[in-house]
Structure formats: structure tokens, C-alpha cells
Design a protein around this nucleic acid. Structure first.
Lengths: 350, 350
DNA sequence: TTGTATGCGTTATCAA
DNA sequence: TTGATAACGCATACAA
């Protein structure tokens, strides 16, 4: 990077990081007044205000966030920790979350935990240390210590992507188990009896576990022995979905329907099936979960569960803002997740 | 959120946000010693250190980031501002960037500008105010004021996703123009003469402009009048890609090949073509750019340009770390982006 | 090896 | 409406 040489050719000394004091000096007022101009402009006279603002602009002044947080103990910053940014699973929800925050003048800091509870705990501490006023978290699975940390610090937080009324924490989301059960019942009602599930690792991921339970529920209600369900746990990625399907197709008996824990896995499975010359859904049915954009454009389009991404994001923001403002934490809110039938699920070939 | 009631039943007062002083008091040393335990453990005796660390744990102490930054004026935090998190365009590169930073004990703060220079400028200020030691930026297009701000503050930064040796700034990336030109030449060499381009908005997006120029270059070298290129500018999204193709197909003459500014647009175009009953590439050819994961799984797989995502991310991290450590900014680095031929490009039907 | 004291850039309380 | 000045929590130069 090229640095501009220190040019003393003009009278104004180029301050690397101008402070309140620099601005105050240049405009002939106290630092207190400058601070007021920035935070509470209405109480300072029009005349001095304009003079101060001019100095601010001229110096390129920007407040030091750390110092401000230290003195004011409120940062107007929220944090969000999502399991992954690699694919679009959380993108739409996060976008809505951020839009609602911005509408309220709040900045969002995002971190990704790579589905690791340990990393997530670090990220939480980091965000809190950075002064996050409130946090958005995904799912309930984390250590008691993490929750203790949050409670002690009295950091408002909301759990998204799940709805769970037996949890004492405020959450906003949908019933993963019920949603997956509805989908699995549709699969079974299409005549499939040989089922498999490709899921994320269940440990540390309550959404995945609930979806898994949902499949078992459906099998039970349809009078099928749930122990025959073949399950492959793998990290969410297209290629892992493809590999998992390959493995399943080498097994015996082959599944006639493969449920996937999310659309990314399903997209991979789909592409694998097709590259092995299988017709979907003629030879094998495949379903997804989440209804992200790729679900519509793969061939055939995925039968999946539509998740209320934007409503969760926006709702979480509102809950959090209310909490941050000292309002009593409201009850958890349940949103609907509904099965959307497209073409990747068909009748059982048998 | 449920807050634990203030319980005075045990002797230890529950401090909401324990400070260095709390830790010092509890372990009977000075705050300086506690600070040393945390930042420079080797200089403090084994005995006191363990006592201090115990207090740290017991109190759930975590350093206040703002205060630390204020006192130490280094944060070990880098920032990255990417145009979008909605799709996977920058995900892999960012992931590699973050991995390399983590390996060096540096935390990454991410912000998204939604392709808006104004928003980006705000984000830059915000990250700098938060103490970011260095920044990763995408592309060159931003206001002179933004660059002045960066220079004055002496914030090291690197421009990624482009390579441009006539720019004075350190960049790491590939030659967008050359890469797109190579792809367009392949298209022309397949016999296509009726071309269209679906691109991101050109204003404020130098990558998109360079790719556009690349198409024109190819037409010129193949002796074709570049003014016949039909161009649609639209925001990157699958549905916009689909809509754009629809528009193109209503025009006359219909294009036989549609180049897309990135894979997301191409995926949308592809799905639109198929839903209109067109065979790809039999009836129409479609190409992408970026080679993100969906490029491989759509039907047919996309002929596209493979972009060195991970190398850019990792390389950018290394450059930035070196700069932060006071080393002279090295020259820009050019990486290769090569055409990958899959199935969405075929001979011209005419 | 440890402690004391000072300053980092803001906000906020109190006077003027 | 404005100005001193005391925190805020931490790192560090300097003493001990």
C-alpha cells in the first residue's frame, strides 16, 4: 500500500486518527460540545454546531468505538453467530435480521462457528467483549457454561431456527420435528417403504436431531419399524450429499426414497443420482429441507420444507430490540414451516 | 430471557461484568499482574499465575475489548467487506481468508455492503472505529474520499478479486477481462454469432465491467461487430437471471448463446430455459463465471470460469498480515482464472 | 517478579 | 447553551 507522505505544505497538520480533542481545538469549543454535536445535536446551538461539523468533516473525524463503548456502555451493536456462511442456509434469515436492525440504527456483527460449540463459545465471548448489546444464536445446543456466561453478563439473546416450548429460553422458529414428520409422512404415503436419511451430524445440532426424530415419528404413525431407517451423518455440503447417496446406492436393499436434512445435501444427492443414470423421481425419490434458492433450480426441483427464513430474521431482531430496551422477554414464537411439493418426490417404483 | 436472580447466598458477589480489578482483588495481586498473566504469562511466577487464572475462571472474566484496544492500540482484528453474503460467490474465498487469519491468532469481522459504495464506506468506518488493524476489500471501485480515509488512518488494505497492474494499490486476484475474453472466444469458436450478456450492474462494479469488456474484446478479435451484443444489467440472483433470459428470448433475433456475469445468474437462466422447454445446449448455450458449487450440479453443468477463490483468500490474508507487521507492501499478485468446459456450451444450432 | 501511576478517547455529571 | 472533570477498563513505563 502506498502511504501519502506526511505533507506539511498546508497549515493543517494531518492527524492520523483525529480525536474529539482535535475537533474541539479546531473549532474552538470543548470536547463536551463536540460530543454533544455528535450524539445529541438538538441541545447545541445552530451556530456552533455547524462550525463543529465542519471541523469534523475537515479532519475526517470518526469516533473511536472502544472509547465510546467504554464511556457510554451501550454500543448499538448486536451480534449473530451462525453455524456456517458456506452456503445459503442462513443467508436469507440473516439478511432480514440485519435489515431490521439497520432500520433501528443498530449495527450487526456476524461470526460463523463452523458448527463447533467450542468455537461458538469463543465467538460469543469475543462479541460480548466487543460490546454486543444482544445476540442472535442458532439452536439450543451449547454448554451450560455458555448460558451461564450470558446470564451473568445479562446479555439478551434469542434462539432462532427452532421452536421449543419446553425450553425456558426465548426462541423464534419452527418445529423442526413436526415439519420433518409431515414431509416424511408424504413420502410414506407415496408408497415408499425403503427409506434413508442423509443428515448433518446429530451431536451438537438440535435442529438435525429433531428432524431425525420427525422421520422416526412418521414411520411409527404409519406402522413401520423405525429401526430400518438407514442414516448417514455428514457435514452439510453438496459433495457430501453426493457421496452419501453413492454409499446408500451400494447398500442392500437400495432405498427408494432418500430424505435429506437440508437442500444442500439433497442437491448433492440429486446430482449423484443423475450422474449414475438414475431417474428422479422415477427410480428414486429425494427430498430436501429449508427451501433455499437451489431447491427450485436443480433438476428436478426439490420437494422440500419451506422454512420462514425472513420472518425468523425479522422477528428475532424485534424480540432482541425489545429486550435490549429493557422490556420483559416475551414468550417464544412459533412460525410455520410447510412442505412444498415439487418434482423430486414421486410414487415408489415398487 | 430469564435472568438468574441476584443470589447472595454464597459469599461471592456475582459481578455482572467482572473487571481486571475484580480479578486482582480476588487473587490478592495488582491489576498489572493480572494483565500480565493474560498477555505475557511468562514474566509472572508460576504460583501467582495459577492463583490469578483460577480467579479469572471463577469470575468468568473476559477482557473488555474496547478498553484493551484503547490502551494497547492493536486489536488483532481484521475486517472484510464483501458485496454480498446472499450467495456463495465470496464464501469460499472468505473462508480461506478467515482460516489463514485464525492460524495467526487474528479475529475476522465481516460486513456486507450489498454492492452499495455508500454502505461500504460506512462499513469501513465502522470497522476502523472498531479497531480493525487491516481490511480486505473487493474491487477498486470506491470514492476517493474512502481511499483518503484509509490512507490517512494508515490502515493497511488489500483489494481482492481483481488484478490490475496499472492501479497503485496492492491487489490480489485475476484478470477478469482476460478470463471473460477467453470464455467468450470459446463461445464464438463454437459458431455462435448471436450473443447476449447478462451481467451485474456495471456501475460501481469493476469486475463486472471488466468481464463486459472481455466479451467485447473477444468479439473484436473474431471480427464481429461488438455493438450487436445485447446486454442486460441486473442484480445477482437466480430469479433475476431467469427473468433476464426470459426477456432475451422475447427479443429478436434470439441469442444462441448467453454469457452470464456469474454462476448465480447462469443458474437462473438455465432453469428458465429449461422451463420454457429449451434444450441446453441444443437450443441455446449458457455460460457462467466463478465456478461456485452450483455450477456443477445444475443440469447441464455449467461451462464457466474457475476463479481461484481459496488462493485469493489465503493470499490476501498473508499480504495483510505482512503489512500489519510493518513490512513494505509487496506488489500485486496475479492468479489464474481458467475456463472450465462442462456441458452448457455447445455448437451453435444454426 | 510485582506494584504504582498514567493515559487511551469518549460520555456524562455537574456547574457556570 | 457551554465547559471542566470524573469515570470507563485496560496496558505499560517506571519503580520497587
Amino acid at each position: 500500500m502506498k502511504m501519502a507522505p506526511d505533507s506539511d505544505q498546508n497549515t493543517q497538520h494531518a492527524t492520523v486518527s483525529p480525536t474529539l480533542e482535535d475537533v474541539a481545538e479546531r473549532s474552538g469549543v470543548s470536547t463536551a460540545t463536540v460530543s454533544r454535536c455528535l450524539n445529541n445535536p438538538s441541545v447545541v446551538s445552530e451556530k456552533t454546531r455547524s462550525r463543529v461539523m465542519e471541523a469534523v468533516k475537515a479532519l475526517g473525524y470518526a469516533p473511536n468505538f472502544g472509547a465510546r463503548a467504554l464511556a457510554a456502555k451501550r454500543t448499538n451493536t448486536f451480534g449473530a453467530i451462525i453455524p456456517t456462511m458456506e452456503n445459503a442456509i442462513f443467508a436469507r434469515g440473516l439478511q432480514a435480521f440485519q435489515e431490521e436492525l439497520e432500520r433501528n440504527g443498530i449495527t450487526l456483527l456476524v461470526a460463523s462457528s463452523s458448527y463447533s460449540p467450542e468455537l461458538e463459545e469463543k465467538q460469543i465471548q469475543s462479541l460480548v467483549a466487543r460490546g454486543a448489546d444482544a445476540l442472535l444464536l442458532i439452536g439450543h445446543d451449547r454448554s451450560p457454561e455458555t448460558y451461564e456466561f450470558l446470564e451473568r453478563r445479562q446479555i439478551p439473546y434469542v434462539i432462532a431456527w427452532v421452536y421449543d416450548d419446553d425450553q425456558s429460553r426465548t426462541s423464534i422458529g419452527f418445529d423442526n420435528r413436526k415439519a420433518m414428520r409431515a414431509l416424511a409422512e408424504k413420502v410414506l404415503d407415496s408408497g415408499h417403504r425403503s427409506l434413508a436419511l442423509i443428515t448433518a451430524e446429530l451431536e451438537g445440532n438440535d435442529r438435525a436431531r429433531q428432524r431425525y426424530e420427525g422421520v422416526l415419528d412418521a414411520m411409527k404413525t404409519r406402522g413401520i419399524d423405525p429401526t430400518i431407517l438407514r442414516t448417514i451423518e455428514t457435514h452439510y455440503s453438496i459433495s457430501n450429499g453426493a457421496n452419501a447417496l453413492k454409499t446408500l446406492l451400494e447398500s442392500n436393499p437400495k432405498p427408494t426414497a432418500v430424505l435429506c436434512g437440508n437442500d444442500v445435501l439433497a442437491a448433492g444427492a440429486l446430482s449423484q443420482a443423475r450422474s449414475q443414470g438414475l431417474d428422479v423421481p422415477g427410480d428414486i425419490s429425494i427430498t430436501g429441507f429449508d427451501d433455499i434458492e437451489i431447491a427450485e433450480i436443480v433438476t428436478p426441483p426439490l420437494t422440500t420444507v419451506h422454512v420462514p427464513h425472513r420472518d425468523m430474521g425479522k422477528g428475532a431482531a424485534r424480540l432482541l430490540i425489545a429486550m435490549r430496551n429493557g422490556e420483559e422477554a416475551g414468550p417464544s414464537v412459533e412460525l410455520d414451516a410447510i412442505v412444498v411439493e415439487r418434482d423430486s418426490l414421486g410414487k415408489s417404483p415398487c
